[in-house]
């Protein structure tokens, strides 16, 4: 009887849709942190087979990020710095720091299905979108909320998004990026999740350009550390040549 009661309560609580913006804020909070250090791998499917790139990133807040390439050998030591809406790259072979702007930002990163612009985007979705819960859904065996996001501003690259958020873990399990008119442009699918420092995070996901045929780009997180104190000097162009 007791058990039954609690199941019923849980079920009702789960089906009662939360407020969209509040849910989105929880999603942001789940991955947000003052200082994060991430080691990840990107596996890119090209026409001649796959290749992978390993990077280590230091992220502070929403607008500062510093990334260093660890592998492959050829790209080791290449660094990227994002400060707000500006992006620089440093290549050790040429010992040049080059500012990436305009047209270049739309190029794909390392041949992947993601552009520099995609990576430059404000990671805090609540800053860009207002959200509404469409209803309950599920991804695989996980119950989820389907969330419709609409851009608050006109300049946002993807005017609409649909997120499938794990009901218990505040974690995006699947994502579709759409144009204002609802045309599907890009998809992201979570392949596996893991628990890191008490948070549930996607540690393997595949990004695909929905208009193009191709194998997509897989991102794997090897390690992630939250609330790391990152020295200020990391986020300066001088550190690129360090």
């Amino acid at each position: 009887m007791n058990i039954c009661f609690w199941f019923a309560v849980l079920a009702i609580a789960a089906v009662e849709p939360p407020d969209g913006n509040a849910l989105l804020a929880r999603v942001d909070a789940n991955i947000g942190s003052n200082g994060k250090v991430i080691v990840s791998e990107m596996i890119i499917q090209g026409r001649r087979g796959g290749r992978s790139v390993r990077t280590m990133s230091w992220v502070s807040g929403t607008d500062r990020a510093f990334t260093e390439y660890l592998a492959p050998e050829r790209e080791r030591g290449t660094k990227m710095l994002k400060l707000g809406d500006r992006l620089w790259t440093y290549s050790p072979q040429s010992d040049r720091t080059i500012s990436i702007s305009g047209h270049m930002l739309r190029q794909s990163v390392a041949g992947s299905d993601l552009s520099y612009e995609d990576m430059m985007e404000d990671p805090k979705l609540t800053n860009l979108y207002s959200a509404e819960v469409v209803g309950p859904d599920s991804v695989g065996d996980r119950p989820a909320w389907l969330l419709e996001l609409k851009a608050r501003a006109e300049g946002v690259a993807y005017q609409r998004r649909r997120l499938w958020v794990d009901r218990e873990r505040d974690l995006i399990l699947r994502e579709e990026r759409l144009s204002a008119a609802g045309r599907l442009l890009k998809t992201m699918e979570v392949l596996s999740v893991g628990r890191y420092e008490g948070r549930w995070l996607a540690d393997r996901a595949v990004f695909r350009d929905a208009l193009r045929e191709g194998g997509g780009t897989e991102i794997r997180i090897d390690s992630i550390a939250f609330d790391v104190v990152i020295p200020e000097h990391i986020f300066s162009t001088a550190s690129l040549r360090r």
Binding site: A157, Q159, L211
Partner: peptide, 16 residues
């Protein structure tokens, strides 16, 4: 055929 472009503000758009 799908046509894709970016609007005045830079947002992606695509149409069949």
């Amino acid at each position: 055929v799908t046509v894709q472009w970016r609007d005045a503000r830079g947002a992606f758009d695509a149409r069949d």
